[in-house]
């Protein structure tokens, strides 16, 4: 695994995503759901909303890094808000 040049922060990052995927799979099996239409006007399931959240979070983090003069963890708060909004309204 040396060639993959692992670091603790990146390992934690991927572990979080893997844990989220497992969690959502379990949720989908335990509590099946019907897709719903939200503000984006197309059907989404919980998994879709997770994807939109993660993709959006990546862009928010980059925008924060490039534009905001504050420390990077501030972007996490923004992303938490984003996630809440996506799961509530999308």
């Amino acid at each position: 695994m040396d060639w993959m040049a692992w670091t603790w922060p990146t390992a934690a990052f991927f572990a979080t995503i893997a844990a989220l995927l497992v969690l959502f799979t379990v949720l989908a099996i335990r509590f099946p759901e019907t897709p719903r239409v939200g503000v984006l006007r197309f059907e989404t399931t919980r998994g879709d909303r997770l994807f939109i959240t993660l993709l959006g979070a990546a862009f928010l983090n980059l925008a924060w890094l490039g534009l905001a003069p504050w420390p990077q963890w501030g972007a996490l708060i923004l992303c938490a808000g984003w996630a809440a909004a996506v799961f509530r309204w999308v």
């Binding site: 040396d2 060639w3 993959m4 040049a5 692992w6 670091t7 922060p9 990146t10 990052f13 991927f14 890094l65 990077q72």
Partner: peptide
């Protein structure tokens, strides 16, 4: 892709030696 993510936060001068570079 995971390897690329790992590379993106480090610096290397070859020889499989990496140094943390953060963001």
């Amino acid at each position: 892709l995971m390897t690329v993510v790992n590379y993106s936060v480090q610096d290397t001068f070859g020889q499989n030696q990496f140094f943390w570079a953060g963001l």
